[in-house]
Design a protein around this nucleic acid. Sequence first.
DNA 1: ATGCTTATCTACATCAATGTCAATAAGGTG
DNA 2: CACCTTATTGACATTGATGTAGATAAGCAT
Lengths: 189, 189
Amino acid sequence: MAGRRRRTAAESKTLILETAARRLRQHGLEGLNITGVADDAGLSHATLIHHFGSSEGMRDALSEKMTLDLIQDLVVAMDAKISPAELAGNVFEALSEGGHGKLLAWRAVEGYREHQDMGMVRDLFNQLLQTTQKVLDVETREDLQRIILLVATAAVGYGIAGDVLVDMLGMSKEAVDKFPGWVTAKIGS
Amino acid sequence: MAGRRRRTAAESKTLILETAARRLRQHGLEGLNITGVADDAGLSHATLIHHFGSSEGMRDALSEKMTLDLIQDLVVAMDAKISPAELAGNVFEALSEGGHGKLLAWRAVEGYREHQDMGMVRDLFNQLLQTTQKVLDVETREDLQRIILLVATAAVGYGIAGDVLVDMLGMSKEAVDKFPGWVTAKIGS
DNA sequence: ATGCTTATCTACATCAATGTCAATAAGGTG
DNA sequence: CACCTTATTGACATTGATGTAGATAAGCAT
C-alpha cells in the first residue's frame, strides 16, 4: 500500500486507548472490540493485536489507564491548597466528568480484578487521605474514614446515576449546583 | 427426544430471567448471551429466542425486571412505619444486596434507555418521595430533594464501589456497620 | 380419544469478532 | 546508501453467538 504512517509503539497505544475510551463513552461496553476501535482509529485490527496481544489485553490496558487518570484527577481536585468548602464540589466535579463514571460502572459489572498497578493506586489513595485530613482538619481516624466514604460513595453514585435521580426528583439546575456545597456543610457540622 | 418438560410461557420466562440475573452477577455482562443462559437454564437457545424474540430482547426484559425489583425493594425498605434512624440503613441494605448494584452499573455503562415501564418507575419513585417526607418530617421541598439525592447517590455508590473503598480506607467491619446510622444522624442535623 | 395450540428441540445457515501468518514498508542507524 | 528493527497490513482460518425453519410432543379443551 502506498503511504502508510508508522508511529512509535507508544504513540499508537495512546491513539488506540483514546479511541477506545471515546467508544466506551459513546457506545458502552459493546464498543470495546478491536475491530470497532481499529476502524475508528483508522488502523487494521491486526495492529491492535500486535500492540496489546489480544482484545482482552486492550481492554485491560484501557482499564488501567482510566483508573490512573481517575485517581490523578482526584489528587488534583483535592489539592491541599483548596478550602474545605470546595472539597465536595471538586470531588463531585472530578468524578462526573471525563467518563470516570463509565469506568467505575464498567469495573463494577465486570468485577474488580486487580491491576498490575494496584500498588500505585493505593499509594495515590493514601496520599488523598492525608490531603483530606489536612484540608478538613478532622481529629479522629474514624471520622476521617466516614467522611471520605460518604463523599466518595455519593460522588460515585452521582457520576453514575446523578442525572437520572435529578430528573426524577424534579430538581432545578440551581438546586443541583448548590448540592455539593450543602454536602460539605453537612459533613462539617 | 424422550421426556421434555413443557412449562407455561410465564414459567419459562421467569426461569430464564432468573438464570440470566444469576449469570450477570457471576460472569458480568458477557454472561448475558442466549447460548450461555440457555445452557445454565437447561434449555436450548432457540427456546429463549422463541420467548424473547432475540438476544437483545432477553436483555431488555431482564433490565426491566431488575429495575422493578429494585424499586420494589426500595419501597419496602422505606416503609412509612420505619423510624428516621433506620432510613439510611435500610436504603443502603436494599441497594447493596441482590445484585442491584450490578443493574445500576449495567445501565450506567450501556446508557439509560427508557423502558416501557418507565411510567411505573416514576410512580413508585414519587411514592417513595412522599414516604420519605413523612418519615423525616422535612419542611421545605428543597431539603427533601437534597436529602434524598445524598442518600440515594451514596447508597448507589456504596453498592457499586463500597467494598473497594472500605478496603482502601482500611475500615473495620464495626465502623462500616455504623456508617449508615452516622449518615442518618448527619442529614438529620 | 381426538385435535389444537405452542413450548421445545435439532439441524442448518449466517455473521461478526478474534487471532494467525507472511508480506510490506517506514523510519532509524551504521 | 545499505541494513535492521518492527509497525502495519491484507488474507485466511477459526470460533462462537445469533437467528431460522421445520419437526416433535406436552398439555389443555372438546
